[in-house]
Nucleic acid binder design. Structure first.
Lengths: 196, 196, 196, 196
DNA sequence: CCTTAATCGAGACGGTACGTCCTGTCTTGTT
DNA sequence: AACAAGACAGGACGTACCGTCTCGATTAAGG
């Protein structure tokens, strides 16, 4: 039968190439920022051909997205302590701590790319942003079940959680400290519990 | 005093050129987005030489910043109704309404540029962002004088006001409606007035 | 041996591009002169990217040199009639005839470039001028063997042959006729055979 | 009467500006060659406005021509010793000696300019080249009167005198020595006196 | 063993934009 | 008028990436 599922044939992709690309991209972004990260540069730095890069990713955005995903694969804890404040605080502290490091630079690059390609922005929304929002939504959901949350709309509360972070990333202000995480936690809880 | 102001000499700049540049830039951004806005394109569209553009602006970012400033010069009302909710709601509705139009595209372009040049991000912070934050700070200050605000830190509250907006601009979600302005207003007020 | 020839790799250059560049350059020089010949113009006229041009030639001079070389590849006859006068006359008539046509314009462009870049002047000397001088040197050598030439220094005689030609090309005087070739031949022979 | 000769009115030209321009041009050419000599650069180096330069000269070529003329104003001896060889030798030695110095660089610049603007080449021909040729023509004329010259055409002989010099200037070879002047003198005399 | 097919490094290719330099003209206020 | 200063349109420079394309050389799996 010719209608079979296309069987993988030919030379298989070299996983070492995958790694080299990701490492080169990561290096460029962290050292030189989004401006210094070019497909050309990634290929040169990794000793890989441009074709090998384009075979894997349609553009810069996808590279960043992949690197970020690979980088944060094991992370993303959804704390469940039975206390809304504690849960939120843990999540925010972990998230903000990350933004102070490499993932912060990656998120900035991601945003830069998203702003230049609406279609890519949608992809990021679906694959990355949605997952992060889910984490908060679960925390809020459990608190709501316990009767702690009275605010009718989770989405607004989630915006309160992540909005300030992107704001800070955008204009490169170093405000994403633990103290700020605490202050923001309090603000979100106030909004969640004292709704008229 | 030897530190006198540099005396104007030579042929004065042609204001018509200023306008042509701003209009061309505005047109390109609104029609084609940040990607479609190039120094080259601005010069071509405005019928101005590249030199004339570079004489005025060191880069794309400064053009956007100037266009945005010129565009919003007369706006920026700081409502003072004697009621915190009304003041905040008016500001947020006006701000969000703008983001649904041309200034939204300009802000996106501004963000794209800021993400690629930290130094430029600082300039934007000082010249544009600070002014917007001041408007909110005044509203909060008056409410605080009236005893309505108990939250100790204005800055966090201001982050709550603008964070979600940039978040929405970044990933191109069309949530900046009047209803959203109302919901956000309530959330900010809750945080401002119900601090433990 | 480690000094092996660099192995050819990557996509090979497209000979059609080579031709397109040469033809465009030739067209521009003959139609508009050296002033009208720009790297930009060559790329535009040939429908080739600027990179493709710069990949092949570091500057305008090399383009001209290559075009001239390609143009005159098959020419360059070294007449050997057994008679000094006849040999010289044939060479000078052929050479001057060429200067009245396309190679004249090319030589003028070459000179313009050489005058602006001493390093390039040296290259031209080695690759082009030397070959032309060799042709005359052979003619003189044979005549010397026959005892016709008494002048001790070929180089001076060769200068007499080509000097006036460049002089004419420089100031665009149309004196490079067959009659002039004859007169110059006589002068050179007089110098070659009547040395005190 | 309105048909009077236009009377010079307004502020007179500042001779110091004339000098500054010439000195700046001279400096640029000798230090950086024709490539490094721009109208812009002359104005900057002389502390004069571009307008002041363009008021005096329509283009680079005229500046060079003027500088060269001013530089060589007092020179140009036409030796008259009663002996053809001595006259020619004196002229050639003086001329070649000059080409080894600043006038050599100026002549090269002049040639570069002439090659790019045929109209300018004609001017140079009429104002500068013609004068130099006249000097030789006089020497030859006197010798012809004394019966020493049998060659029917002075112009060819003059070409023999100056052709090799331009040839040498073109390709930047340092052959314009006193010895070369002597050799060339002999060659010219041979051509002038042994015509079949 | 030997095709088949996808991979690999290398680098050419048409484009587009960058930011700079120079040309020749013009427009100010000052001398 | 001439002058210093400098704006202006235009054009070319040489470089950097983009995303696509051709090469020859590997590298498996399937016949």
């Amino acid at each position: 039968m010719s209608n079979r599922l296309r069987v993988m044939t030919g030379r298989p992709r070299d996983p070492a190439v995958d790694d080299a690309i990701r490492m080169a991209a990561l290096g460029l972004i962290t050292e030189q920022g989004y401006r210094g990260m070019s497909m050309e540069g990634i290929a040169a730095r990794s000793g890989v051909s441009k074709q090998a890069v384009y075979r894997r990713y349609p553009g810069k955005g996808e590279v960043i997205l992949d690197v970020l995903t690979a980088y944060a694969r094991t992370r993303l804890p959804t704390p469940d302590t039975g206390d809304l404040r504690e849960d939120l605080l843990a999540l925010l502290e972990a998230t903000f701590a990350a933004q102070r490091g490499v993932p912060g630079a990656l998120n900035q690059a991601l945003a830069a790319e998203a702003l230049q390609a609406p279609a890519f922005a949608q992809r990021v929304n679906g694959e990355l942003i949605a997952a992060r929002r889910d984490a908060v939504r679960q925390i809020l959901g459990r608190a709501r079940d316990r009767g702690e949350v009275t605010h009718p709309d989770d989405e607004v509360l989630i915006d309160l959680v992540f909005g300030p972070m992107w704001y800070a990333l955008l204009f490169d202000v170093g405000k994403l400290t633990d103290a700020y995480a605490a202050a923001l936690t309090d603000a979100v809880i106030a909004a969640a519990t004292h709704q008229p």
